[in-house]
Design a protein around this nucleic acid. Structure first.
Length: 190
DNA sequence: AATATAGCCAACCGCCACTGT
DNA sequence: TACAGTGGCGGTTGGCTATAT
């Protein structure tokens, strides 16, 4: 799959970060024609990208209904709860968080929450070493258990640190907001 | 001020499931 | 039934930014 070459046409496939121009083309095309078969969409839009790449870009970044910005406390708790229930079923979890993508949740989990789990495991290991005798079995045996038992309080603390006004405004300015893109698209005609 | 390290996130890769022929 | 094309998913990586030394 994902062959660089689809047929006799010599079409090179672009990889790497999307440019603003590509974003506009894709957004425009979907606005005019809707989502469809991604491979043919990529071709007909004139993008030198695979259908997969277009789909990913649209779903994870360009969709107008995406929520950007920091994960809220409620969302974090929901993620933890659902992860305890389903494990790494990110897309399933994402369905319960409107405007969030599986990729976003997955990244969030790996970079923030998993860190706390690791820490908790270390503490637990140290604790069982120091307490040692007779305390076997008190340690959480699974990620889910660890999360629910050991991590939640620590994690909750960080929620406060990360949430709301504590986030500097500049952080959000790395992104082209959807308002920007859609207004550019309007300016571009159509 | 320069360099090293850690954290974060967008994007790619590989696999699997589904669908049409 | 077998095969090819496509979509979807989870894991992983590369590069940028922030922070520490």
């Amino acid at each position: 799959m994902d062959k660089t070459q689809s047929s006799s046409q010599d079409v090179e496939v672009r990889k790497g970060p999307w440019t603003l121009e590509e974003d506009l083309i894709l957004t425009n095309h979907i606005a005019n024609h809707g989502e469809g078969v991604w491979n043919s969409l990529a071709r007909s839009a004139g993008l030198k990208r695979t259908g997969k790449s277009c789909r990913l870009r649209w779903l994870n970044y360009l969709r107008p209904d995406l929520r950007r910005g920091n994960i809220t406390h409620e969302e974090q708790l929901l993620i933890m709860e659902l992860h305890a229930k389903w494990g790494n079923r990110w897309s399933k979890i994402a369905k319960h968080l409107p405007g969030r993508t599986d990729n976003e949740i997955k990244n969030y989990w790996r970079t923030r929450i998993q860190k706390h789990i690791k820490r908790a495991e270390t503490f637990a290991a140290l604790g069982s070493e120091t307490n040692e005798q007779g305390s076997s079995g008190s340690q959480a045996s699974s990620t889910a258990e660890l999360m629910v038992t050991d991590c939640l309080p620590t994690y909750h603390g960080d929620v406060e640190a990360f949430s709301g006004e504590n986030i500097p405004q500049e952080l959000n300015e790395n992104y082209w907001s959807m308002e920007d893109l859609w207004s550019m698209q309007l300016l571009n005609g159509d």
